[in-house]
Design a protein around this nucleic acid. Structure first.
Lengths: 118, 118
DNA sequence: CTTTCATATCAACGTCTCTTGAGATATAAA
DNA sequence: TTTATATCTCAAGAGACGTTGATATGAAAG
């Protein structure tokens, strides 16, 4: 990820509705969610939701595919990890004071749980 | 770092001049740099620079202290690591597809990394 | 105390962003 | 085909953002 892509991604994530959409889609897994379901979760009108989804897709943080009459959106995991890696490498040049605590915080949370079998 | 702080930080970093200022200050170390030196590096007028520095300081990504007749700005390492940690924890809920590659990319760069805690 | 240097503040302007509401498009069902 | 469902697109308006130029503040030097 280069600087321009990172700026787009940061701009996309710096908006409450969009940050929440990404969070929702990350937890939703690779199958993603239909736009309507996302809109319901966000309490957003169709055009407002479409605006933000388009914005996120443009920034590369989300991707879409048609599924019947709905359109399913899913998180672009690679772009998200690319953004975080960009921030860490960018910040880490000479100063692990940023990256070390960040990685430590990650290790401290219960994240690396592969898949809670339903 | 909570959602509101993260949104502020993401918004602050989503602007080219400000992202570059942060990058510069991170490499500058805890001593930071005088505003004039930053402005010279950015090719920015005094008021434009002041606008962005104030924005960054408001977002908590930078701090300032007077030093003679200049004002030195330095990176807020804790806020930066907090932001990255926020993104990782926020993204990692259920999907290490984001965090694992990000941490791996960090390990691959020349920065000293902490050993992952159990 | 006046001058000079470093930086901040303010007002004004153009531009971008977000929201809303109306209408268009695509898919599926009757 | 007609109708209903799901989503997108467009235009307009309010507000936020970023730049500029002029001015103010604050610290040091003469």
């Amino acid at each position: 990820m280069d600087e321009t892509q990172a700026l787009d991604a940061l701009g996309a994530l710096s908006q409450e509705t969009r940050l929440r959409i990404v969070r929702l889609l990350v937890t939703a897994g690779p199958e993603g969610m239909a736009a309507g379901v996302i809109g319901e979760a966000m309490g957003a009108t169709s055009s407002r939701l479409s605006f933000h989804l388009t914005h996120l897709e443009h920034a590369g943080l989300v991707q879409s595919r048609r599924d019947g009459r709905s359109i399913r959106y899913s998180a672009a995991y690679e772009a998200l990890s690319g953004l975080i890696a960009f921030l860490m490498r960018d910040c880490c040049q000479g100063h692990p004071d940023v990256c070390t605590p960040a990685v430590a915080a990650l290790s401290a949370c219960a994240c690396p749980t592969p898949e809670p079998a339903a």
